[in-house]
Nucleic acid binder design. Structure first.
Length: 554
DNA sequence: TCTGGCGTTGTTCCC
DNA sequence: GGGGAACAACGCCAG
């Protein structure tokens, strides 16, 4: 109900008006939302239309600017192939068109006699500017545009408006706002409309001009791909979700922090890549969980599976409402930290050569397979930034963007902000140990043995700290530390202490700047003065922080 | 304006 | 080994 209302509103046309003008030929533009199920924009493209064409534009921007690794390309192409297969069941096809959207659409509008363009709302900065341009071109061509929200549970702009015009910056605040908005809209059923709106496509002509390309067609070497553990596409997404939802006990007792980052089989759902590309509707998943929970005791947000969908909602909403969300400079929610450029350490981290087996195994899994457990992401992100290497989270973000098959602009930036304690999370003294953390769920180091075969023969006692193994043990294991596997590039205990102090200094600078700004604006001068003079809780707290900083930096 | 409680996922030590 | 407190002490937010 809500979505239909929104659709009409955003498109600036009424349903009555639509029926009178009766668009005959439409394009549904697939970007994310690579699915037929619960796709309100696709449904809008079929509404009262006799010829709907499904289009995906292979925008060169993604090849040149978007930092997409080969595993994610493979996932995308599989998803497109799956979509094409599904459309064939409706006597239709997917039209994959090469070129910039701004060049492609005016031609398609004209050649195909299009009167209606529909697409799913995308809140990422590039998508927003791209879509604004396409909207202008459509308007110029007399083509109506209908946009629908279905990548998120709620319309992010509505959530922001409900929060008073700015995005909620805490999870609890988001929950409060969403509770005021009511449950998310129900999924839409599309099959009948799709059947009516699809028209036959000439087979031979089609594959030559509009077929889904192969990796080789795109200049990618398929040999660079890792094993295909999570094939792309709506069919796989729905099958994966169904399998998972059937395990109701597991679903009801799911608590994210209790899942294992280094199990050999994923301990979580791995629905993230399917949600990223929209092969799976978040609302289908949400209501699938509602059914699974029904009448049973179950975990709750933030740790439950519903909670995971809300985290996705949280970061997408903040990302949509925060300029420069993916960088430190000009990002209002981000603490400014004096990270250091260290290409050698960054490369060691990226390639799994830090000398810390747990970190290196995680990064190897990421590079080869395109997915690692969320807590593994925490450990490696903390290590790169505030924990050990003091390298900017922006660099880590770019590496994740390249390697992850589920790399999502908002979630990636949001989580890096979180883990580097630059925003949302502030307890910077809680540092993951690259040695201790993994042991909790994998004492024997089986995960390390799998991803770093060189270390596979080390006894349990040394597997997380092979540099502590006596020379004789290293020789017996066929791996000399410093020759066959690196020595640790930093001393964790020393780096941790130094970096906690550096974070304290960064926070102190930020708070100092805030106070100065408040004073300069003629705000609460009395409060500022009181703090400056010393005395009271705040001042003693400040003195403590200063001592802490001095102890480690001087 | 101040204060106490809380925050998805730290580590170490002790019982 | 499991649970709870200490460690040192962050920002946010409701009341």
């Amino acid at each position: 109900m809500f979505l239909q209302r929104k659709t009409k509103h955003v498109a600036g046309i009424s349903f009555k008006g639509l029926k009178k003008t009766m668009a005959q030929r439409s394009i549904h533009w697939f970007r994310k939302g690579l699915r037929l199920h619960d796709n309100p924009a696709l449904m809008a493209a079929c509404d009262g239309v006799t010829h709907m064409r499904a289009v995906f534009v292979l925008d060169p921007w993604f090849a040149t600017q978007a930092n997409v690794g080969v595993n994610r390309w493979r996932f995308l192409l599989q998803a497109l192939k799956d979509l094409d297969n599904s459309l064939q069941k409706y006597n239709s096809r997917l039209f994959v068109v090469r070129g910039k959207p701004a060049d492609v659409f005016p031609k398609l509008f004209k050649d195909w006699g299009i009167t209606l363009l529909t697409y799913e709302v995308d809140t990422e900065p590039y998508a927003v500017s791209r879509d604004e341009e396409i909207d202008r071109l459509a308007q110029g061509a007399g083509v109506k545009v209908t946009r629908c929200v279905s990548h998120t549970l709620y319309d992010t702009q509505m959530t922001i408006a409900k929060n008073g015009g700015s995005p909620p910056l805490t999870y609890q605040r988001l929950q409060t706002v969403l509770s005021q908005l009511g449950p998310p809209p129900k999924p839409v059923e599309i099959k009948e409309k799709l059947l009516k709106a699809c028209s036959p496509v000439l087979e031979e002509e089609h594959d030559k001009q509009y077929g889904v390309p192969s990796l080789a067609d795109l200049g990618k070497d398929p040999a660079d791909c890792g094993p295909c553990l999570f094939p792309g596409g709506e069919s796989h997404a729905l099958a994966r979700m169904d399998t998972m939802l059937k395990k109701t006990n597991w679903v009801c007792s799911f608590e994210k922090p209790k899942t294992e980052p280094n199990s050999l089989e994923p301990s979580t759902t791995v629905l993230s890549p399917y949600l990223k590309f929209g092969c799976l509707s978040p609302r289908i998943f949400y209501y699938g969980l509602v059914d699974a929970y029904k009448g049973k005791k179950h975990s709750m947000p933030p740790v439950s599976l519903h909670g995971q969908l809300l985290w996705r909602e949280f970061f997408t909403t903040v990302g949509a409402g925060t300029p420069n969300f993916d960088q430190m400079e000009g990002n209002q929610v981000c603490t400014q930290v004096d990270w250091e450029e260290n290409t050698e350490w960054l490369e060691a981290w990226k390639m799994g050569r830090t000398g810390y087996p747990f970190i290196d195994a995680m990064m190897t899994q990421l590079r080869l397979e395109g997915w690692i457990h969320h807590l593994g992401r925490h450990a490696v992100a903390c290590f790169l930034t505030r924990g050990d290497l003091w390298v900017s989270w922006e660099h880590g973000q770019r590496v994740f963007e390249e390697y992850l098959i589920d790399a999502d602009w908002s979630l990636n930036a949001g989580n890096w902000l979180w883990l580097s304690a630059s925003a949302f999370f502030h307890q910077y003294f809680r540092v993951y140990s690259p040695v201790v953390f993994g042991k909790k769920t994998d004492k024997n180091g089986d995960f390390i043995r799998k991803y770093i075969p060189k270390l596979s023969k080390f006894p349990e006692k040394y597997i997380y700290e092979p540099w502590t193994a006596p020379r004789a043990v290293q020789e017996k294991c066929g791996c000399i530390i410093g020759r066959d596997y690196p020595k640790p590039i930093v001393n964790h205990d020393e780096a941790r202490k130094k970096n906690i102090a550096r974070m304290a200094a960064a926070y102190a600078r930020r708070n100092g700047a805030k106070e100065a700004a408040a004073g300069g604006k003629g705000g609460n001068k009395a409060g500022g003065k009181r703090k400056a003079e010393g005395g009271g809780k705040k001042s003693s707290k400040k003195a403590k922080v200063e001592k802490h900083i001095t102890d480690f930096l001087m």
